[in-house]
Design a protein around this nucleic acid. Structure first.
Ligand code: SF4
Ligand code: SF4
Lengths: 149, 149
DNA sequence: GCTAAATAATACCTGAAGGTGTCAATTATA
DNA sequence: TATAATTGACACCTTCAGGTATTATTTAGC
């Protein structure tokens, strides 16, 4: 009943970058601000790049930035790109296909919830997040003793 | 964004047994009707027994039956008993504590969904499922070549 | 051109959820 | 009281999402 960690990370990364979009962020800087293990963050950044959400710049002074207008990126896009496996099972019991001739009482209740989630994901863009101008993410961090690579 | 398999199994087991409650079901019969690996089913049955949803009868002609009136068992009870870890993260980004001074745009949207799920789980009992009288579960099964133990 | 700072690629490790295997304990019925 | 059918206990195996480690490639700036 949660998004996968990877999905949460993706939302977190893009959500953070959206607040000051057009800026170039290195993995190092993102790591200082978001709470994601460095190498896993790196992995997700290249995935998000391959999936078209980010443009990456290699070499010294390189980094990542958001690739398109914020109002063209919905949460739905982000969540689905993660490979979140079909988001939810149609059947609340987890049956592959319905076990009843005619739908049971839970079916429509569950479908209603699925729809409300879908709607919210499809109708929310990063632009909306930015518009509320939350005063940027603030993560408490432990001392960095090792150099990140 | 799905219930864990174990949660789905629990709903499935109790949902099935609710349709003709008071009946005594052996693990064998449940295995023939629900699509859950036999030994894992067994494990869950004893857990559901320990958690108070079922009463078990050992020995020949033994089995399980639902332990209390259907209207006293909510989906919420079942889902929570599974150990589904706190059902969902308050923050859609998966932060442990809020990363913003004042709530971001996504917060209330996500909270609204959480509430609708909670409400539906808390207000739905097995009795309601039974009342719609779905014409019992029908699972296609492969030949059983080995004896279940 | 050299070097340092960045990303890319690729392979490996780990913990926990889901699933198995074996044997012990209980009980109806013949 | 012997047997077979059932559940209980407990240890083990498997799979894969999440996380690491290492080395290669790119590029700004001296
Ligand atoms: S009607 Fe009930 S059993 Fe059938 S798919 Fe819907 S939730 Fe599952
Ligand atoms: S306001 Fe935004 S960042 Fe803060 S807890 Fe809610 S969803 Fe998370």
């Amino acid at each position: 009943m949660n998004f996968s960690k990877t999905t949460e990370y993706s939302l977190r990364i893009l959500g953070f970058m959206a607040i000051e979009d057009h800026k170039l962020y290195s993995a190092e800087v993102l790591n200082q601000n978001l709470d994601i293990p460095f190498r896993y963050l790196r992995k997700q950044l290249t995935r998000l790049t391959n999936d078209g959400f980010l443009i990456s710049y290699r070499g010294k002074a390189g980094g990542y930035k958001i690739s398109k207008p914020l109002n063209e990126i919905t949460l739905w896009d982000i969540v689905n790109a993660t490979g979140e496996d079909s988001l939810y099972h149609e059947c609340i019991f987890g049956f592959d296909s319905c076990a009843f001739g005619n739908k049971c009482a839970l079916h429509h209740k569950w479908a209603k919830i699925q729809n409300s989630i879908n709607d919210m994901l499809k109708n929310t863009t990063l632009e909306e997040l930015k518009r509320t101008k939350p005063e940027r993410f603030t993560i408490q961090h432990n001392l960095m003793l090792t150099k990140n690579v």
